[in-house]
Design a protein around this nucleic acid. Sequence first.
RNA 1: GCCCCCAUCGUCCAGCGGCCUAGGACUCCGCCCUUUCAAGGCGGCAACGGGGAUUCGAAUUCCCCUGGGGGCACCA
Length: 555
Amino acid sequence: MLGQRRDPPRGQHRRHGLRCRGAGVVRVVGHDAAAGRCDPHRYTGRRGPHDGGGPRGGGDRRNRRAHEPGGECMSVRVRFAPSPTGFLHVGAARTALYNYLFARAEGGVFILRSDDTDTARSSQEYQDDILEHLRWLGLEWDEGYGLGGPGTFRQSDRYERYAQVAAELVESGAAYYSFVTPDQLDQFKQDARTAGTSPAYDGSLEPEPAEAGRRQSEGESAVVRFRVPRPGETVFTDVVRGDMRFEHAQVDDFVILRSDGRPTYHLASTVDDVDYGITHVIRGEDLLSSTPKHILLTEAMGGVPATYAHLSLLMGPDGKKLSKRHGDTAMAAYREAGYLPEAVNNYLALLGWSASEDDDDVVSMADMIARFDLGALSRNPAVFDTKKLDWMNGVYIRNLDDEAFVAMTLPDLERSLGRSLSAEEVERFRDLVPLVKERTKVLPEVSEQVLFLFRPLDGYDEASWEKVMETPEAAVALDGAIEALTDLDPWTTEAIDGALRDMLESEGLSARKGLQPLRVAVSGSTVSPPLFESLEVLGRDETIARLRAARAELA
RNA sequence: GCCCCCAUCGUCCAGCGGCCUAGGACUCCGCCCUUUCAAGGCGGCAACGGGGAUUCGAAUUCCCCUGGGGGCACCA
């Protein structure tokens, strides 16, 4: 019996028959099986007949996906199943996010699985990276890898189970031992190509059953292939793409078990989806054309296919599929570059979904959950453009409270400084936080802005110096400031402000002409946080010293 | 080559037959505010790929073309 699972994950699943039925339907030509679904008004996708979601306005979007309890549906179970063959990248993170949002929106379960059947390319380092960054993003999973409990949710631990399923499929005739050689297959595909026909392998190169049985029992190396019923077709309704139809003539008799006994992705992934009771498979569009294989496999196992939702892919600025050559695609790079997880989530959510009701597109995780609607996701591929991410990160940074901001930026500041800040210095830094915050897009910029306050100047920015120091007003301003500030007491922003403005007036200088030289003298650049506050934090002695040094440089 | 998906400003999204002289966000450009840089305010540039068809009426429906993307492994 195929439906049995020997490694049931935490939380027993109902019998398949009780599950909310997916939209997958296999049919032999001429037979149109009805796709019973527990709620025809949900997840029909935009391509389906309009469900009459009510008049626009009045929050009908919410009503459309409101969950009706008490139905026959078992609760939603989704999974994010990355292969640990690389660091968590932004595209995968978006897939994880949408899975997470859907689970939370439906009161369902979010599962993390490790699809590590590619033993050659998988590594623990990648696996760790994926976990770490999912956690960093706050996409906590309810079941799965790394949480303990029954089941490891790691496919490399379940080879026996997959082999067992494969054996049962062979037993039932749904699959067979295949002896075609790679060369033969190449030739087959080559011929199909020149003939302009479908290159899908149909098993026609296999030996007679009797001979196959003999060779198999003699221990000849063989793979197990799934026998795709031909003619026939698989139709299903994709939640984001609508009704899909794939003729089986286009589908290979695909390998499910390698000659070394290990499963392929199709087998392992499908078995797991059945065993773990996955109700909705939300994944990248690159798997769309593999879906018939998964549905066929599921049904051959006696399972009920999940509902599928295929997300559009992320592209680089050149319109090609996002990859390393487009620059940073690893989540780690964004974390290190000083992006906040909230901003990353928000931005990623926007790539393919109109996540916010507000004009500025800023939306909290809670609101995203409240609004999430699988059927409303865009079908267009989206270009990953960091410009908007930068802006959005600035928004989130500005919204940080001062304490959090200090906590997040202090380590980098101290690292740049090469020493730790005294308690008194931290206080001074804190005083400047409101000013610095609104000038920051990514965290490391903070150090750049305030470093001059905590260490001696290491020279002046050349362009800045030329621009404001090589003017007739510079010396006047510096002399005037030195005089105005030398005996200033108290040394506060207000007092400095007053003293310097008096100086400007008596010297007949505009603020621009008179203050910029001071800024360069003190900070080394024409770009810095507000001057008076900066001077207060710098302290009188250091301020005067820097003004004198610049003045000397002028002479 | 075969199969599949997609097609609104530079980018993301809205638009679900009349409310569209197409809306918002980011970017960019002006102006205002201002001691610099930001932030903020105001304003501007900027799109329905092409062709047919249906309809009184199409960005919205259908077909074709073109363009872009994905898949066609003992990778996932």
